[in-house]
């Protein structure tokens, strides 16, 4: 599938193998492009969806464009409810929780994989168990906990929950990468007289920047789209996030699907942009990470 040398069209030698390879390439590209089309469709669909009214959403084929696009869905979304406020909240909560999770998870993973102490696999096990509880089992206990701490209706409850529930996944992902880090780097650093902290911040974090970008993307998506905790722990409109904006259009008996589409469209744009930026970091990661002791 992957061939070491560049495709053969710029080479003058045409032999059987090259032709075969060429056909293989074409087929592979066709396949790849086909999958890419399939993957981009949901976004196109969502855009079209957001320009329809209920009648058109249920009447027309999913990908047919309405004769009179309902741009007013966007106006409706923008003017109804505190979408700007929700937006700011979403950005803040997502960013803070993400930064804390990635940092804390790196600390833990580092201590567990690189440092020597008794009980580290037990501690790792403790974190892994955190993956296993269904979210609905946690709502009633967590609510009463936050109530006792006077943290209900406070963004802190949300941030703490996000960090705690994302820590296990993040640690797990980091784990695979930390195990593969060469030991020599650390040895060299320690001989140079580095402290653990310095080594962690100066060497390990940069070396793992590609996986950090990966976990950051994953955390961002989770936090950005989460709504069960927000709904349960937050009651003031001023602390709610964009996912709640969707509910603004679900009525007792009627649901304004077009407006929901517009809300989803608006809410996907920021993470799309950040995703595109962060996703380049994954590649750059190797360059920055190839620090040799």
């Amino acid at each position: 599938m992957k061939v070491a040398t560049a495709p053969g069209y710029n080479s003058g030698r045409v032999n059987e193998r090259k032709i075969l390879q060429g056909t293989g390439y074409t087929l592979m590209y066709l396949g790849l492009i086909l999958v890419a089309l399939v993957q981009i469709f949901p976004l196109v669909w969502l855009l079209i969806f957001s320009l329809k009214n209920n009648q058109e959403i249920f009447n027309m084929a999913p990908f047919s464009i309405p004769a009179h696009p309902h741009w007013e869905n966007y106006v409706n979304v923008w003017t109804n409810g505190n979408i700007a406020q929700y937006f700011v909240n979403s950005v803040l909560i997502t960013a803070i929780a993400l930064a804390l999770t990635v940092l804390l998870a790196s600390f833990v993973t580092y201590a567990v994989t690189r440092m020597r102490w008794k009980g580290r696999s037990f501690v790792l096990g403790l974190f892994m168990v955190g993956l296993m509880i269904p979210v609905h089992s946690t709502l009633i206990p967590l609510f009463s906990l936050f109530l006792k701490l006077h943290l209900t209706d406070s963004p802190i409850s949300i941030i703490l929950s996000y960090v705690a529930f994302n820590l296990p996944t993040t640690i797990m992902i980091l784990l695979g990468f930390y195990y593969a880090l060469p030991k020599e780097v650390e040895e060299a650093a320690i001989i140079d007289g580095c402290s653990v902290n310095t080594m962690f911040f100066r060497i390990i974090l940069p070396m793992t920047s590609s996986v950090l970008a990966t976990t950051a993307i994953i955390n961002m998506i989770y936090n950005w789209n989460e709504f069960i905790f927000v709904n349960t722990f937050i009651s003031s409109d001023k602390y709610k996030t964009l996912t709640v904006g969707v509910q603004n259009f679900i009525g007792q008996y009627t649901t304004d699907w077009g407006a929901i589409g517009a809300t989803l469209m608006i809410s996907i744009l920021p993470i799309l942009i950040v995703f595109l930026l962060l996703s380049d970091r994954i590649v750059e990661g190797i360059a920055a990470g190839s620090v040799k002791g």
Partner: peptide
């Protein structure tokens, strides 16, 4: 009057969680 609005499903869930802590609106 401080309003909190939820959709049907979320409303019922939240009512239940709030009830467990005797914290109804």
């Amino acid at each position: 009057i401080k309003e909190e609005v939820l959709d049907n499903e979320q409303y019922k869930n939240k009512l239940k969680v709030l009830s467990a802590s005797n914290e109804l609106p």
